[in-house]
Simulated assay, not measured.
Amino acid sequence: MHPLAIAAVLLAALTHATWNLAAKRAAGSRHFVWLYSLGSVVLYAPAVIWVLISERPQLETAHWVALLMTGVLHMGYSLTLQAGYRVSDLSLVYPLARGTGPLLSFFAATFLLNEPASALSVLGVLLIVGGILMVSGLTSEPHKAPRAGIALGILTGFFIAGYTINDGWAVKTLMLSPFLVDFTGNLLRLGVLAPMALRDRVNLIAEANKYRSPILIVAVLGPLGYILVLYAMKHAPIGHVAPMRELATLIGTYFGARLLREQVTPVRLTGAVLIVSGVVTLAATG
């Protein structure tokens, strides 16, 4: 993989884990997704306007389909992830979501987009996914893992795989700007969730004040991290970028242990080593 693509993915992993920590801390908010979507639209609108003026993209049917799909898939991802955080730990839902997503993304990129796959790249993916399963605790204490948390974590992973393939197609084949792709997702969430949010203005205002810091963190870092990922996808195979993002799982596990006081066992530490090994293996195949 190109060094700039690797650097973009690594920085994206840090921003992703950071905003997920903020999202977990705002798990009690009913309108958190709408609030941070509003923040993202306001903050990133100038950059998107600049892209539209400077690049003057000619949008055809395929472009509109890609933008609509990214909006739908990202909305499903955001709502499912936040629902998972309401019922379970960051250190369970996050690894499950991040483990299911890259596995599906890798095979979809291989079989649907005809990206090359080697025995070494498959080994890298399996190491990452196996490590994430260990980090989640499902291999050692599955009876203690909340079923709702498991289901929502896996469902989130399906949305991750869906938007990864769609958005990779959008930036690599259709040549859409990463800024435009990410902005569309935020704009659609904002519009679809607005009626529910605005009908509950008392709670909306109260949550905006109570969760001001998490809202700002996600509004800034959510788009930033994903724009970096989309940039990496333009310069590297999607099937490699998607699993490499899972370095965020290490950071998320650390946050869960140190900041949210969730338990980290030797099994989880072993899983962390497997994740790093898988990332190194994937990087070596690019």
Results as ranks from 00 to 15, higher is better:
Lys144Cys: 07
Met233Thr: 01
Leu112Asp: 04
Ala7Gln: 12
Gly256Met: 07
Val181Gln: 01
Val264Tyr: 15
Ala66Ser: 05
Arg189Tyr: 05
Lys172Leu: 14
Ala26Phe: 00
Val280Glu: 11
Ile165Met: 01
Ser88Ala: 08
Val241Gln: 03
Leu224Phe: 07
Met233Asn: 09
Phe158Leu: 07
Asn166Ser: 06
Ala13Tyr: 10
His31Met: 01
Ile227Gln: 12
Thr139Arg: 04
Pro3Ser: 01
Ala97Cys: 06
Val93Thr: 14
Gln82Ser: 07
Pro223Trp: 00
Ser29Ile: 03
Asn186Ser: 09
Arg212Gly: 15
Ala208Thr: 10
Thr110Val: 15
Pro102Val: 05
Phe159Leu: 04
Thr139Lys: 07
Ile275Gln: 14
Lys144Ile: 11
Pro195Leu: 01
Thr110Arg: 09
Leu43Ile: 14
Ala66Tyr: 00
Leu269Thr: 13
Asn203Glu: 04
Leu274Ser: 14
Leu81Asn: 08
Ala47Gly: 12
Leu4Arg: 11
Met233Arg: 06
Leu230Lys: 08
Val192Gly: 02
Thr249Cys: 14
Leu198His: 04
Met196Glu: 11
Gly71Arg: 03
Ile53Lys: 09
Arg201Ile: 04
Leu204Cys: 00
Val220Gly: 11
Val229Gly: 06
Ser91Asp: 02
Leu104Phe: 15
Leu138Lys: 01
Leu96Arg: 15
Ile132Ala: 15
Ala108Met: 10
Ala283Ile: 05
Gly71Val: 02
Glu207Cys: 03
Asp200Tyr: 01
Leu104Asp: 15
Thr100Asn: 13
Arg199Glu: 05
Leu282Thr: 01
Gly153Ile: 03
Asp89Tyr: 14
Arg56Leu: 13
Leu176Gly: 07
Leu11Gly: 11
Asn203Asp: 05
Phe183Arg: 05
Gly185Glu: 06
Lys210Thr: 15
